[in-house]
Design a protein around this nucleic acid. Sequence first.
DNA 1: AGGTATTCACATGAAACTATTCTCTGAGTTAGG
DNA 2: TAACTCAGAGAATAGTTTCATGTGAATACCTGT
Length: 398
Amino acid sequence: MVVKLDKIFNSASNSVFRDKSVLQANYSPETIPHRDKEIEQVAAILAPCLKGEKTSNLFVYGNTGTGKTLSVQYVKNELLKRAGSSPSGLRIEYLNCKLKKIADTEYRILAELIKKLGGEVPATGLPTDSVYNKFIELIDKEKQILILILDEVDQAVKKISDNFLYNLTRLNSELTKTQICLVGISNDLRFLDDLDPRVKSSLSEEEIIFPPYNALQLQDILRGRAEKAFHKNIIEGGVIEKCAAFAAREHGDARRALDLLRVAGEIADRSGDKKIKLRHIDLANNKIERDKILDVIESEPKQFQLVLMAIFELAEKNEKMFTGDVYKVYREFCKKVNIEVLTQRRVSSIISEFDMLGLINARNLSRGTYGKTREIRSAIPKEIEEHAKIILRDAIFV
DNA sequence: AGGTATTCACATGAAACTATTCTCTGAGTTAGG
DNA sequence: TAACTCAGAGAATAGTTTCATGTGAATACCTGT
């Protein structure tokens, strides 16, 4: 036993990493390669705020991991650095609208902003308009320019409806001293299309699109980070290229590439290897994929897990199944573990959500006289499915 | 044979309901002066 | 009389139920040849 622990601890001190945080999601590098043009554009649009003028509202688009957030944050910091010396009254607040329980409703977004500006709002109990008033009161105390960066607004709009954006744009007319500028960041390129035209026109005064990174650019990024993250000569030839190639396939997602490299490093550490080899990348890719799926399954509420279990159960016999089948099996499971049975309507939505999460593939299918339904099949690889079942069993039969 | 109608088994949407957590307000209660 | 307590009304939110309406194609049912 002791020997084993020795080995583990040794490998910890003998890591391939010099500074792992460089590869973690929240790390912000001082240079952002291949985004000069975009950063300049953002800066040019927001520059007037340094002179105390209102800037145009801005919308930033691009797939995940294309450096949107990073670039905007970078510009934000530069602006604040420059504004710091002069009493220009510039405030820039960044808010990620996807954060559950923090900023995923109109009320909470406002509350969070108020909190960032030094106010205090209870989590619930107040009507939304009084929170608006409080917000107005808070920011309109002194003359200032307020830039609100709303990351992943598409998520918020999907959940709340777009009139909260409308309210925000309209806010300027109620403010006497302060001016608000909005910077929206979205992963969804079609997001603008199904937005209320009023909101659309006022919000997208300026638009910047972040194209995906190509494999060569990803290699650059990876090399830059790897240099800081790992000790010298740790990475074998071809590893960076392979990481980049994997991520380039995933719509040029740099975050994915960095994750891949980090996990590969962790795997190398754990297996006691002194170098990161090509096969570590494959292992890392599997691990990331697996962890993602298993995390989702584990964190799902009980009812969802029961439905999923029903799907797995059926998937064992037949590859594909229909909603009605799933519901029947689900109901049996519920009775077995003494949990209330949800309506078929609800289960149908749950199935839809699984489809969105990519845990299953569902497609609408008409079977003529035998009705219209959804054809469902598990989208989880067999190896993982076994593991997933164990997790489900543990979670349900506690 | 070719065309229309029916019918199934759900999908999809909207609204309403439930339970929980929290605020606000005003009535009633208490303790000290 | 000021301070305190406590119940009730109202909000926000998540997760659901209820009600209503929609739907694609296999099959049944015609219809004229």
